[in-house]
Design a binder for these strands. Structure first.
Lengths: 349, 349
DNA sequence: TAGAGCCTGGACAACGTTGTCAGATGCGGG
DNA sequence: CCCGCATCTGACAACGTTGTCCAGGCTCTA
């Protein structure tokens, strides 16, 4: 076997397709390894002439610093992880973007993953991110037990939960006032004369869903209205189930006169169902939706500020990394009732 | 200075907050370094008893493999980069998600970045991703000169462009039939009796915008309708400009009777403007928008399949990494005209 | 002109992992 | 009882970078 195909060399060759390293640059420029490092990182202590020679070699070879090695040496990856439910959900788009902007401002990249609302997948993703040694994590939890994160937290991985609190561990969390928002939304319907009000929401194991349900119940109780079981429907919020739930509430001898929709997906489906009915049913939805103002009637919603959630969480994350922040806190952002017509319809019976 | 605070040790201590390494695990389990590696990676050649001891040490210490070191050694990061325009744009949500799913199926993580339609920022992002040694890149280009990628391509970074082709280099690209879609959409308006048709689109330096404009012109020419300059408006698609453009086309002595909206953002704004007008103006938009069917009238659109774009691109990427694919290709996905009413309105004059 | 001090450049180790290879151990057969 | 073989284990180098430290050359002053 000729010398040029010894194992090490063959490995290196198949590796990054023969990417040049600082060593190669140093050899070509006729300088030491560290000098190249200095030029690459803009460190002082290199004469212009030397720098020119090094830069020339870099350009000629198409050298690009290998950040994996750098990370290994420095201990910081300058990247943060974002685990959310579904990147395709319009609610998470602005949230992700906000997190990304803050990351960018702090010189970090964003690694993204969708848990698809599956706790196992969430854990798998989070741990994969920890193995990459992301500096921090922004997590929209799917599960309700995050003890698996304890070793990571202890090891110094900054972590902020968003939209829903962590389970079984003490961690920063940024969320909307789901309870208050839902309560206000339902109270709005009550104020417009409704008593039989339906609630269609997500599975109650999801914190936001439970809180919104609690808000609904509180508003009803405040008004002295006993809630009937048939008015509430909790479960996955795919169109089929929501449609069935809505149809059910709207039919029967004592149909609801108004519906509170527990999230954006529910709202959209309910709007569709209502459009097929002649009877006018009032509607308030949680989460704003695009074009809500252009529908007939406009859709009244309890809006949360997704971008603010993301921004706040990411900023807290970097303050944790600074060392500025130590004690985990729970931050609740207010919601805003936007009236557009659908919530102001009077009871139709 | 006491021995325990020598530089190396202090560094290690401040590093990942004292994360245990394989060495620590090996020491605790009383085995060799490589044996730990074998257990962690499920390699054969370890007796059950030894494995148990090692596993115990791992759990006790909360050890998690450092993938940075692994990457450095193995040369593959098992991650791909996705550079797009704006994560918050509803068009890119499903696209990202599709890319992520394919990445996941191939055991890779997704690093995400928004270029904000700024070529410099695109380049900065792409090069940062290359420095991380992502295995591949899915890029929705903002710029039109991608020669800066040449060394990376040569070094074996798999690359697929989406939605718009790369500039000045030969690379895989997956895009929609923007020309054909726009032509069909405009032809649809012509078929319903319109002649004075406005076009509001993005800056023509953006490939999709240029193609759609070309489609518009082609449809008009096919119908023998000379296009007037005042019917076309190209530029940034923020609401203010689009609103002004629409108002202009709809006023004056010879207003347009129909509008072709060049992308989802334009469509939304135009819908708003039209809602304020009493005269009924026909509308066809490029890109589907949520709730388009529930507006009065429903919005007729030329829909592209964002998820399919993402999926196709990501699959090609991994086939490049397999070595299955070599020659760059241009793949064009068809668009679909969805008629809902707004495009079928007759001319109002 | 010699000595002090500064500036530039380079040798070397270390980061945590994995691939290679050789050594140790145990077992069975001659 | 010893040898050979298979199996399991561990020492060591290498991946590409950065931090430390020292050597050598230069300038400036006395």
């Amino acid at each position: 076997m000729p010398e040029t195909t010894r194992h090490a060399e063959r490995n290196a060759a198949t590796r990054y397709g023969n990417r040049p390293t600082m060593k190669d640059v140093a050899a070509r420029a006729g300088v030491g390894l560290k000098t190249v490092s200095r030029v690459v990182n803009g460190e002082p202590g290199v004469t212009p002439e030397t720098e020119r020679r090094v830069q020339e070699a870099i350009d000629a070879l198409g050298f690009r610093r290998n950040d994996s090695a750098r990370v290994l040496r420095k201990g910081r990856t300058a990247s943060i992880g974002l685990v959310l439910e579904d990147l395709a959900d319009p609610f998470y788009g602005p949230l992700s973007r906000a997190v990304e902007e803050v990351a960018r401002a702090n010189g970090a990249l964003l690694i993204n993953g969708s848990s698809a609302e599956d706790p196992d997948r969430e854990q798998e993703l989070v741990l994969a991110l920890c193995a990459r040694r992301v500096d921090g994590l922004v997590v929209i939890p799917a599960g309700d037990d995050h003890r698996y994160l304890e070793p990571e937290l202890k090891a110094g991985v900054a972590t902020v939960f968003v939209d829903r609190p962590a389970g079984q561990i003490d961690a920063d969390v940024v969320l909307s006032d789901n309870f208050g928002g839902a309560r206000d939304g339902v109270a709005h319907l009550i104020a417009h004369g409704h008593r039989r009000i339906g609630f269609i929401g997500d599975m109650p194991r999801i914190h936001t869903a439970a809180e919104r349900l609690r808000g609904y119940r509180a508003a009803m109780e405040d008004a002295g209205i006993p809630v009937e079981d048939t008015w509430m429907s909790l479960g996955v919020t795919d169109p089929e189930r929501v449609r069935r739930a809505a149809e059910e509430m709207l039919s029967g001898p004592d149909p609801v006169t108004a519906v509170f929709a527990g999230n954006n997906r529910v709202t959209v489906t309910v709007v569709r169902v209502l459009a097929e009915h002649t009877r006018r049913v009032a509607l308030v939805g949680f989460d704003d939706i695009e074009l809500a103002d252009l529908l007939q009637p406009g859709v009244t919603v309890v809006a949360q500020d997704a971008a603010a959630l993301g921004r706040t969480a990411a900023e807290r994350l970097f303050r944790q990394l600074d060392g500025t922040l130590v004690t985990p806190e729970r931050i609740e952002l207010p919601t805003r009732l936007i009236t557009r017509g659908s919530g102001e319809l009077p009871p139709a019976d």
